[in-house]
């Protein structure tokens, strides 16, 4: 479907594969609510590398989208970054004013939002909306920007871009709209692409096409991809590294193969156990009992204590820090599991 004959984005000269593009350190996000200030993202750290995919994995409500929006500087008015740094290619975005950030939005960082399929502006043609990035950042004329928009549409595999460029969003299918949104995010050849649940609203065949498009874009331009999802299988297939989130905190990070092969945090372990591996269909899922704590009831010590089978007194008193646990891996647990006490291989 997607033919990349006319390549728009090419590898950036200034990027070498596997170089760290984004380093998030100790990120805190607070939400102001009528009930008081809630900590939606707490002390989150991870890094994304050129030409690699980092998966942010976690259940609904654990703060994945909030983290993504904080990195992109596009939080809702009620939410604020209250701590930490977001270093993109040497610049701490969190320290910039909203106005200063504008010049990074597009050329350095592209984002595909979770509600993407309804995110296009209904009153403008997709051509106009694709042109906008070129109009704003490269000050191109409407005509020149439209030529770029057509190229971009062809690049992300939209058939007959010359005629489709003047169509309105409602005239496109969900999969095509997602392609357009991805095209918008990569229009200016950024270093980093954040894709928040890019396939959740699509049917299975389209999901595969969209993931292939993201892979192709990543490979050809050394893009660092942050893939946000709650889908373990997708992480296993697409990501190089994973950061597992729970109740606003990162509880485990590392290469996907190793984390899924030998999870060290009881939550990661529980997640993997809830997936039927070789078990036949219809078998009971070994899902984690209980549910994550609500934001205003996050306990003192470990965030996972209410559901953890290994919980001890120390867990209730002291929150475990995210600490190095073997090569390239980190875990936040007082009793990080050792390879010895796990018996299932889930990958």
């Amino acid at each position: 479907m997607s033919t990349h004959t006319q390549s728009v984005s090419t590898a950036r000269e200034d990027l070498t594969e596997n170089e760290v593009v984004l380093r998030v350190t100790g990120l805190d996000v607070d939400i102001r609510t009528p009930k008081g200030v809630l900590r939606a993202v707490n002390n989150v750290s991870f890094e994304a590398r050129a030409g690699r995919t980092l998966a942010l994995l976690g259940e609904s409500g654990c703060g994945k989208s909030m983290t993504a929006k904080a990195v992109a500087g596009l939080l809702d008015p009620v939410a604020d970054v209250t701590g930490g740094t977001v270093v993109l290619n040497g610049t701490d975005l969190a320290a910039l004013s909203p106005k200063q950030r504008l010049k990074y939005a597009g050329p350095e960082l592209g984002i595909v939002f979770q509600d993407a399929l309804t995110a296009l502006n209904p009153v403008y043609t997709v051509g106009t909306q694709l042109s906008e990035a070129f109009r704003i950042h490269q000050k191109l004329s409407a005509k020149a920007a439209k030529v770029k928009a057509i190229e971009l549409m062809r690049h992300v595999g939209i058939p007959e871009p010359e005629s489709r460029v003047d169509s309105f969003p409602h005239q496109f299918s969900g999969g095509m709209r997602q392609r357009i949104l991805i095209a918008m995010a990569v229009a200016l050849n950024p270093r980093l692409l954040i894709a928040d649940e890019p396939t959740t609203a699509l049917d299975v065949t389209v999901q595969a096409q969209i993931m292939k498009l993201l892979r192709d874009l990543r490979t050809e331009s050394h893009l660092a991809v942050v893939l946000i999802t709650h889908d373990l299988a997708l992480v296993a297939e697409e990501a190089d590294t994973v950061a597992v989130m729970y109740a606003g905190n990162v509880v485990e990070t590392g290469p996907v193969r190793e984390v899924f092969g030998s999870p060290k945090h009881p939550y990661t372990r529980g997640l993997l156990d809830s997936v039927p591996a070789d078990v036949g269909r219809g078998a009971d899922l070994n899902s984690i009992a209980g549910s994550p704590p609500e934001l205003h009831r996050i306990p003192e010590g470990c965030v996972y204590q209410s559901r953890c089978p290994l919980v001890q007194d120390v867990c209730r008193a002291i929150r475990p820090a995210l600490e190095a646990e073997g090569a390239g891996r980190t875990v936040a647990c007082h009793f990080a599991l050792t390879t010895a006490n796990k018996e299932l291989d889930h990958v």
Binding site: D115, E132, A133
Partner: peptide, 10 residues
């Protein structure tokens, strides 16, 4: 959502 989308384009 299109407002956030516009902002994401700078």
């Amino acid at each position: 959502p299109y407002i956030k989308l516009a902002r994401s384009k700078g």
